[in-house]
Each structure stands twice: as C-alpha cells, then as structure tokens.
C-alpha cells in the first residue's frame, strides 16, 4: 500500500503587505493546507500565478518558515527542528527552480557549481565528488564536456538538466519541481518531462510537481492538488481532475486549454489585490459563475465527492450527482 513520505497538516503562511487604503494588512499566501505525498509518487500542484504554489514548495524545502502547521517527513516533524538538526534532512528534500538561467551562477563553470554544491552538502573528497557527478551526468543525458562550460554557453534545456542534476546530487527522496518546464520550448519541454519521469522511476523519487498547465500536470502526476488563492479547492487522481473536475475553478482551468474550443465566461478582470479575503465565504465566489447566496454565507469545507476525490464547493453538497454529470461548462 501507499506509504506516506511527507505529510503536511494545516499549513498557513501570510505575508505582511502595506496598503495605502486599508493600512497594514496580511496577505494570506497559504491557508490551512493539508496533504500527503506517498513514496514514489508524483503529486501535481496546479493553480494560477499568485495562488501560493511556490510559497508551498519553498516552505517544504525550508526556504521559508510557515506561520502555522506541521510537516512530517518520514514520520519526523521537521518544521520545528533546529537548523543544526535539520541539516541531515536538507539533502533529502530538494528543489528545482523555474528559471534555470537564474538558478546557476553565471560566473562559475558548471563543474565548479556542482562541486561547490557537494562541498556544502558535506562531501569533501574530490574523488567521491567526481564519481557522483559523473554518475548523474549520464542519468540526466549530458556529457562531461559540459562541465568546463559556463551557464550562458548552454541551451535552456541543458541548463535545466544541470539544475535537475544539482538537485539530485545529495540523493534526495523528495523533490519539489517548481514550473520546471514553463521557460522551455515545447520540444525541449517534452524531453525534460520524459527525463523527470524516468528519473522518478529509476530512483524511486517522490515529487511535488508544480505547474500551471493542466495538460502537463495530467501527463506527469499520479494525484493532483488544485490550489486557488492559498487554499486547496480540489484534490484527486490526475484523471479525476482532468476529466471530471468538479470545482468550478478546476473546470475553468480545463476550459482554458488550447484544444478546448469554448470561450471563457468573462467575469471581468480579476485583480488579486482588490479581492478582500473574507473568512466567511467561498474564496472563489467573486469569480464563480454558479455563485449563490450560500456561497457568501460560510466557507465550504473540503468534502469527499468520491473516494480520494475531495472538493471544496457547496454545490456538491446540495446535489452531488447533478454536479458530476454536468459537463464542464
């Protein structure tokens, strides 16, 4: 059976923002997020920019601290560990960033970047470093000749391969892949997606795969979380989310795919900064085509539509069957 590797409970994070009109306020980047990543699983995370995807990834890698919540990694609560005690987990949880160009120091040769990463991870013997790098170079489909080049001499795809290699150096069991293909051409995107899937199988990695592209998410993930303004609005298997998305937001994402020849209802122009968060209503209500009185009076809970398919929408409590059989807009 599926064995949990990473468990997240009630994670919240807010950033202070100063607003001239309203005085000092907080922007709730993550609100009460709970989920589990199983061993050897790719969990997809989809949502628009600004919804908190990257914040979540950063917190999991301890690049940011949560306000509230618990993170268990292999059963150990890692969010409360001291820096010294966390050290042995740092290498186990790694992140690949969106923009490979800015993730690599332009003044260092690729080889120097890799050796430095290993040094800081505590592997100091030059021979051991070399072995590890050479082993992984083949796995990510690169030749040793690249080690003496500077990042700007590499193509976008090669740079992203180096970034993946960099993340794998410390032999992690959990990888956060944050929009790793959004800066790449379609044909290169396919190569990198294949590479990540291959590595995941070969090394038994668990991956949180973050993307805004539902097609990519469906192809890559086993299960998917749909996030909207810091909340999980739907979660389920990749097929459930892609073909039977039940939350109006998931349906909106689906209808935005290029091959869906339908026009989007124009709900006006959304400006995230103008949407004042209210505790007691559905977070999607201002954009929702089905918004009703109930949605404005009380926040819907994440409830089970079918096995492992959770949705945060009142319409589904009211008439489960109708909502599911209805085609996506």
């Amino acid at each position: 059976m599926a064995e949990p590797l990473l468990q997240v409970y009630n994670l919240s994070k807010s950033y202070p923002v100063r607003d001239q009109r309203r005085g000092k306020e907080c922007f709730q980047a993550l609100n009460d997020i709970s989920f589990t990543v199983n061993k050897g699983e790719i969990l997809g995370l989809i949502g628009e920019s600004g919804c908190g995807k990257t914040t979540l990834g950063r917190i999991l890698c301890r690049l940011d601290t949560p306000d509230d919540g618990t993170i268990l990694f292999e059963g150990v609560q890692i969010d409360s560990l001291k820096e010294k005690d966390y050290r042995k987990y740092r290498g186990r949880i790694q992140m690949v960033f969106q923009d490979p160009s800015s993730a690599l120091n332009p003044q260092f040769r690729v080889g120097e970047i890799l050796h430095e990463a290993l040094r800081s991870a505590g592997i100091r013997k030059p021979l051991a470093q070399k072995d590890r790098i050479n082993l992984l170079l083949g796995k990510v489909g690169l030749t040793p000749a690249l080690l003496s080049r500077y990042p700007h001499e590499l193509s976008g795809g090669q740079k992203q391969r180096i970034c993946i290699l960099l993340a794998l150096l410390t032999r992690p069991s959990f990888l956060v892949a944050d929009e790793v293909v959004s800066a790449l051409d379609l044909s290169v995107q396919a190569q990198i997606l294949n590479l990540i899937r291959g590595l995941q199988k070969e090394l038994g990695l668990s991956i949180l795969f973050i993307s805004h592209d539902l097609n990519v998410i469906r192809y890559m993930s086993d299960r998917v979380l749909v996030m909207y303004m810091g909340e999980i609005v739907e979660s389920g298997t990749a097929e459930d989310i892609y073909y039977h998305g039940a939350h109006p937001y998931t349906q909106l994402l689906h209808s935005a795919l290029p091959e869906q020849h339908e026009s989007l209802g124009d709900e006006g122009i959304t400006d995230f900064s103008d949407l004042v968060l209210q505790e007691d209503r559905c977070i999607f209500a201002p954009r929702c085509p089905y918004c009703s009185e109930t949605c404005l009076n009380g926040k819907p809970a994440l409830s089970e539509l079918s096995k492992d398919h959770l949705v945060r929408c009142v319409r589904l409590w009211q008439s489960k069957v109708e909502a599911v059989s209805e085609p996506s807009r």
Binding site: S155, G157, L186, S187, V188, Q189, A190, Q191, L193, N194, R197, G198, D213, N215, V216, R218, Y219, A238, E259
Partner: peptide, 23 residues
C-alpha cells in the same frame, strides 16, 4: 509533425512523450 506530437495533450501517461532529438 514532431512539434505537434510533443504536446502532452491527452498523450498516454504510460509512454514517454515523443521528442525531437538534439537541438
């Protein structure tokens, strides 16, 4: 043809995406 095929679209999850070798 290769460009169109490399879109993940509704490609079967269990097989790798067709890619264009090289750059």
């Amino acid at each position: 043809r290769a460009l169109i095929q490399s879109m993940p679209g509704t490609h079967d999850k269990n097989s790798p995406l067709p890619t264009i070798e090289g750059r």
